[in-house]
Design a protein around this nucleic acid. Structure first.
Lengths: 153, 153
DNA sequence: TTTACTGCAAATATTTTGCAATATC
DNA sequence: GATATTGCAAAATATTTGCAGTAAA
């Protein structure tokens, strides 16, 4: 699926969601959705906001915060929060869970890794009385770069 | 292992850590460590701080923040952060990873669940060039209480 | 025409920082 | 005695909120 088709598909998802919740289909919301899906990596509210600004599309921060909340609610975006850094977000394309995160406790760098077997195992898990929607796996440790740095000392 | 023995053991761990990093062994640090290990559940900096205050042991918030950072660094405490709530912490006793978390996306309630098989699977994972220290698994969904609430509507 | 949504600015809340006083090593 | 750590207050930062104006339905 190419980028345009993905965007069209997520726009449809969003439209359905807005419709079902009786929320309004404003140009701001679609502009934000589009920029979110231009992002190739994790992003912050601030980076999303300034990307929009840099392209001369002005929306208030309040609207960015508000819209991201909607995108999370309809499953198009997920939030991550590490240490006491500002919240990070990532777009969700296709199947919700297909990777997880390695987080370096020294430099804070985050790497996505695919591990289909583990994902399969996780998907098979059931917890009584709990309706699972999705999950997140964070592996903490020391990345190769920091390992090398440590050796030098 | 009873509570006193656990406390003695974590005090030793902390002392070794402070020693190895050439940090000072202040009474404030040990008082905070002790209160952390009195906590039976997840806690906030603020709840830890006010517990100390209520027992007439005064430390500044800055010291609480600073000490928690040390406890995380030496593996006695872990941080969690959901939504945009303040950071939550939990003490780590014995083996680091023996439970994971179910988080209700509606009411925000967090439940710890044991799932030894899954933990075993996770512990067996290896990621090239990455030195794993520990991991966290968060399962998001709707708890039983909220499921019932939703049905009523 | 109704009222949900937007932008802006102010408010809130958590965490961090600067600095003088104190206590550990 | 040197300096790491503390307490306090102020600052920084991220996010939320109130409100008046605008636009979607």
């Amino acid at each position: 699926m190419n980028e345009d088709k993905i965007k069209q598909s997520v726009r449809n998802t969003f439209t359905e969601y807005l419709h079902s919740k009786k929320l309004r289909k404003t140009p701001e919301r679609y502009a934000i959705l589009d920029k979110v899906f231009d992002m190739t990596d994790h992003f912050y509210i601030e980076s999303l906001y300034s990307t929009l600004e840099s392209e001369a599309y002005h929306v208030s921060r309040a609207t960015v915060y508000n819209t991201i909340e909607l995108l999370i609610d309809c499953g198009l975006v997920r939030r991550h929060q590490f240490n006491n850094q500002p919240a990070q977000y990532e777009k969700i394309t296709g199947v919700g869970n297909n990777h997880h995160h390695l987080i370096c406790t020294q430099c804070g760098k985050i790497k996505e890794v695919k591990d289909p077997e583990l994902i399969k195992t996780m998907n098979a898990r059931r917890y009584p009385t709990f309706h699972t929607a999705y999950f997140a796996i964070y592996v903490y440790g020391v990345c190769s770069r920091c390992q090398r740095k440590n050796k030098k000392k």
